[in-house]
């Protein structure tokens, strides 16, 4: 009986692994950060599969072999207190597995938090991504343009997304390029990523923000550097300027299509002053300055 169940669940488990290898978004990375996470996921799946198989086999053996029906009527199960060696194995092997996975975790976490592998020495492109109910605003301070609900990035160049929110906590997620990070009202988070292949990638808010949450998505288009440059110049030549009034209108709760402006909202609606996870650019020397800033802020309020 239980065998059926076990067979059933293992078939399902295998389904995940088999279909998972190529076609699933998260396991189809297009940049070094997502590649790292995809590798970690696959390694952990295989490791965990060993444990699952061991437990399933042990369970099946026990249930079949020691079933009352398969035993003599007068069989009295013995009293077994426990065995030091068995317990050492039961503790020891999981500890070894956990250590193995810990090493992978720590290494890969530092990797995805830092600059993308292979682009350590390149100058990153900084893009501010702010969430508001239920939109994403992308500001390019260097290029001096702003887009809503879509973002263009050059391939083969590290991108630094500076994340924050007007309103509830949102989670910035482009599964094929990198894992998530929160966009919050009171601090700026940094997400590092790079795209190795040109293409269109799905991006969305993954953290529930209320009524329009399901549609709070955006498109990421990765272009070869030359095409990207053309796009920038085109926008700079054709788009309307973003005024403060216009930006406040954009912030109103609701859904919007894709929009494009010259200028950014950073001048009149600057991002929060506290930074997290951006060691190189906002290192210790800035902290004191920031603390003073925020203290002044709270005094004013």
């Amino acid at each position: 009986m239980t065998k059926k169940l076990i067979l059933f669940s293992s078939i399902f488990a295998f389904l995940i692994f088999l279909t998972g290898c190529q076609s699933l978004t998260v396991l189809d990375p297009k940049g070094p950060q997502a590649e790292t996470t995809a590798d970690v996921i696959m390694t952990s799946i295989w490791t965990m599969l060993i444990i699952v198989i061991v437990v399933f086999i042990l369970l099946i053996v026990m249930l079949v072999k020691y079933r009352a029906r398969n035993q003599a009527d007068d069989y009295e199960p013995p009293y077994i207190k426990g065995n030091k060696w068995v317990e050492i194995i039961c503790v020891g092997i999981p500890i070894i597995i956990v250590i193995f996975l810990s090493v992978i975790t720590v290494k890969s976490t530092y990797e995805v938090e830092g600059k993308p592998k292979g682009y350590e020495n390149d100058e990153p492109l900084v893009i501010y991504a702010a969430s508001s109910n239920w939109k994403w605003h992308f500001s390019y301070p260097e290029e001096n343009i702003e887009t809503v609900n879509y973002v263009f990035i050059p391939t083969d160049r590290p991108i630094e997304f500076k994340l924050y929110a007007y309103g509830p906590i949102a989670s910035f997620w482009v599964p094929q390029l990198a894992g998530q990070k929160y966009a919050m009202a009171n601090m700026v988070n940094t997400l590092n990523l790079a795209a190795t292949e040109p293409g269109e990638y799905m991006g969305r808010n993954a953290s529930f923000t209320g009524e329009g949450f399901a549609e709070q998505t955006f498109n990421v288009t990765a272009l070869p550097p030359a095409d990207y440059q053309t796009w920038i110049e085109e926008i700079q030549a054709t788009a309307e300027p973003l005024t403060e009034d216009k930006f406040n209108q954009l912030l109103e709760p609701g859904r919007l299509g894709q929009e494009t402006y010259t200028g950014t909202h950073l001048e009149f609606s600057p991002p929060p002053t506290t930074h997290h996870g951006a060691k190189e650019s906002d290192g210790t020397e800035n902290t004191e300055q920031e603390m003073n800033d925020s203290m002044e802020d709270s005094m004013e309020n």
Partner: peptide, 30 residues
């Protein structure tokens, strides 16, 4: 009680997978 063991094991090992911070960036809120 014995049905709990296989299903919980799958739930449990995926918990270990979620515990790995770098990978959790992809599982979180999904």
């Amino acid at each position: 009680s014995v049905g709990f063991i296989p299903i919980f094991t799958i739930g449990g090992v995926t918990g270990v997978m979620l515990a790995m911070a770098s990978a959790d960036y992809q599982y979180h809120n999904t």
